[in-house]
Design a protein around this nucleic acid. Structure first.
Length: 103
DNA sequence: TGCGTGACTAGCC
DNA sequence: AGGCTAGCCACGC
């Protein structure tokens, strides 16, 4: 398939199950370019405006909600994650390993 | 065709 | 221990 890097990110992000989260590095690694983690975030930024992607389930490797700044509200991303049973503290996911999901 | 951009990551001070 | 800098790759203009 001639899926672009972006399209691959969309597919993987949509595969994230309810109550789970993943990291940019994990997705980038799955795509075969662990150094392209930036592209994952960049792709999600473009995807969120078109596709129905749960981008709030994707966080950085430290569990920090770095992408929340791209959401409408300031705590929207946090509320969405908390609604799925994930605990957030200071924009950081608690028990990240417990909720971490690798493609 | 080429340069700038960016929701990252890892290493150094 | 905490903060900053450099490197990385794909997409858009």
């Amino acid at each position: 398939m001639e899926q672009s890097f972006y399209q691959k990110v969309y597919e993987i992000t949509k595969q994230i199950p309810f109550g789970k989260v993943t990291t940019y590095g994990a997705i980038a690694n799955k795509l075969g370019s662990p150094q392209s983690a930036r592209l994952v975030g960049y792709a999600l930024n473009a995807s969120k405006k078109a596709e129905d992607i749960p981008a709030h389930r994707v966080v950085n490797r430290k569990g920090l909600l770095t992408g929340k700044i791209h959401f409408d509200g300031t705590n929207l991303m946090q509320q969405l994650l908390e609604s799925e049973g994930i605990t957030i503290k200071n924009n950081q996911i608690q028990n990240l390993e417990n909720h971490l999901w690798i493609p």
